[in-house]
């Protein structure tokens, strides 16, 4: 059965990419909230936030990119839940296809859709004055980290989509993920925060990822943060993947 895994995944990815193509609003709405945050923080709050030298949009963008992904993956949970409750997955699972292709189709689609949303948000940031002298290699690392972050959160979204009882439940899990960057170095430097909050902010995954991307954009060496970022993403990815495949096996044979 595994011999079909690749072909089946391609076929099912094609299916859900068509869904996105036919309702491009899912990509637009994914990008709208991060863009609104970008505008709000750069043009309203930003003037009062002291992040040292350089335009605030440069400081802000990495965190906004993570918020983009966090809101984008909610659609993966939603689409998976709809497929499960609508019965199309029953049809797929009664056919001789690779078992996991149904999940991988949604995961690959999530990577594509989030990449487009991220590109849109980065484009808007450029219009707002974001500038970087990052080398192609640094850009490559940024893209790699964002894709890894998307992949990790997507598998968490798969867990939510597989185990949700209602449509609302399927996407509600992403709210805390969207909120997490606020309790990090994404918007303001952590040194102004009171003790416990600061401790949390400095030790949660978003800060290390944000700092890494910020350093890469600013042409600095990312230091130890990059290893923490990779470890967090890798850990969440493994956890999400193991949970998702376990639930999937129990739910569909």
């Amino acid at each position: 059965m595994t011999s079909h895994h690749y072909g089946d995944t391609v076929a099912l990815t094609g299916r859900s990419l068509r869904h996105i193509l036919r309702s491009p609003d899912t990509i637009v709405t994914t990008a709208i909230m991060p863009i609104a945050f970008l505008l709000l923080f750069v043009y309203v709050f930003g003037g009062a936030i002291d992040t040292g030298s350089g335009p605030y949009v440069n400081y802000l963008l990495p965190g906004i990119l993570l918020i983009t992904v966090a809101s984008g993956i909610a659609y993966t949970a939603y689409r998976l839940f709809t497929d499960l409750s609508g019965g199309i997955i029953d049809r797929f699972q009664s056919m001789p296809i690779a078992r996991s292709a149904v999940l991988w189709g949604h995961v690959v689609t999530s990577l594509v859709a989030n990449s487009i949303s991220l590109a849109v948000v980065i484009g808007v940031a450029f219009l707002m004055g974001f500038r970087t002298g990052a080398s192609p290699l640094a850009w490559l690392v940024v893209v790699g980290i964002l894709l890894l972050f998307t992949l990790a959160l997507t598998w968490i979204a798969v867990v939510a989509g597989l185990s949700a009882k209602t449509v609302d439940g399927a996407s509600a899990f992403s709210y805390p993920l969207i909120f997490l960057p606020f309790l990090s170095s994404a918007f303001v430097p952590t040194d102004t925060m009171p003790g416990p909050v600061r401790w949390f902010a400095e030790n949660q995954p978003v800060t290390s990822i944000v700092n890494t991307i910020r350093d890469l954009f600013a042409e600095r060496a990312p230091g130890a943060d990059i290893w923490a970022a990779l470890a967090w993403c890798g850990g969440v990815l493994v956890l999400g993947y193991v949970l998702a495949t376990r639930i999937h096996r129990r739910r569909v044979r």
Partner: peptide, 12 residues
Amino acid sequence: SLTGQFAAVDEI
């Protein structure tokens, strides 16, 4: 092959 009530078609 399975069809009917609970084997859906893709509406989109």
